[in-house]
Design a protein around this nucleic acid. Structure first.
Lengths: 203, 203
DNA sequence: CGAGTGATTGACTTAGATCAATGACCGTGG
DNA sequence: CCACGGTCATTGATCTAAGTCAATCACTCG
């Protein structure tokens, strides 16, 4: 869900760019919230540090991800944001965003729609993680990512390693599972595309 | 995030109640969207059925959960909603909700805030699932759920079995991990409460 | 032409799932 | 008032799927 889908150009124009060195903090728990953030390059992790000094990672944002949307409605940040690699980000000032929402209810709806969509996607992904078996997990993934025709999955743009990470599997496990499915005749692979065979064992 | 936190009473008053028998569909993919849904009792699953007739579960909603928020912004539902048990739900009519948002930008913001909060929670939960080791997973959970003092986790209201499900562990694994942590002196347990010991090995 | 990365496959190990059994509680119906 | 059925909490034994380590091949990029 690219940010351009819902954020009015007028607001986007007010973004502040910022470069971060690996290890540098973008904001810290308790800081006054400046706005929400889009990661342009690098990785930024959100985390909390407990009394014992131990860091608990909440999320690792990759390019294209946005974080701290909730800070729009809160005076302070609720966790730390730290660059895991050299990174660059865009900060969308809270005041500008909220003003846009107040004036233009379409913009607010677009924002809500994007968030609702994300909630759905995340719930689905979480559901996926409840599946224990690698094979079932991969089937779940393929079923959900099949294109219009319901039987073709196009991976172009993502490496299998990335898919493995999304599935919560080691890349080796994914390779093996895919070959097993292929050997079993459930899928056929051609380069960047996977085709589901119609003949499927009943569940 | 209870629905009363953000949905204006005027809209709540317009909810339609509906009872479902186990197996009965609340809506189906492609149906015109009536509004979003709060599950009052029972379980409702969201799923899709692929060409081969195989059902892929996207999410299982329990009492208190809301589903199909995104349908507010879409003319049709994008999946099936089927009662897994006898269930009752409340449907909040789209028109009423959207009208409230248009008139009262506070309501729209409240909605967005709730969604943003959920996105954060879900991302965190997903991050948790990326942790392979049961022990680390439990530590992550405890660190995130520690109360104000940063070292007390109160489980009242949730059984350990429920916690295990949330963590994506078998309940046995959770029991064992907790006893191991206790034996190791990392935590102390007293009935429904778990206390983190300050003395923690450095990471 | 190396260096770096993805894709793939083999061998080995282990953490956690699964199956099982037990005790503590709790409500409830006779 | 108590026996009975149900659920949670807990622990033991066993098994296997998936992680980890490792090696190879194909590419691509300066």
């Amino acid at each position: 869900m690219p940010i351009t889908d819902w954020l009015p150009a007028a607001v986007r124009a007010q973004a502040r760019e910022r470069k971060l060195k690996a290890g540098e903090a973008l904001f810290r728990l308790g800081d006054k919230s400046a706005g929400f953030v889009e990661v342009v390059s690098g990785r930024v992790r959100l985390s909390r540090v407990d009394r014992a000094g131990r860091e608990t990672v909440l999320y690792v944002a990759a390019p294209g991800d946005t974080v701290a949307e909730a800070s729009l409605f809160s005076p302070r940040y609720h966790c730390d944001a730290i660059a895991s690699t050299d990174a660059s980000v865009r900060i969308y000032p809270k005041a500008a965003v909220l003003a846009a929402f107040a004036q233009d209810s379409k913009a607010a709806q677009g924002f809500a729609a994007t968030l609702a969509q994300q909630v759905m996607t995340l719930r689905t992904r979480l559901e996926q993680r409840n599946i224990r078996s690698a094979r079932e997990r991969v089937r779940h993934f393929l079923a959900l990512n099949a294109g219009e025709d319901g039987r073709t999955v196009d991976l172009s743009g993502a490496t299998l390693k990335e898919v493995a990470a999304e599935l919560g599997l080691s890349h080796e496990a994914l390779y093996r599972t895919l070959s097993a499915l292929e050997r079993a005749g459930e899928i056929a692979r051609a380069g960047t595309t996977i085709t589901l065979s119609r003949a499927r064992a009943a569940v």
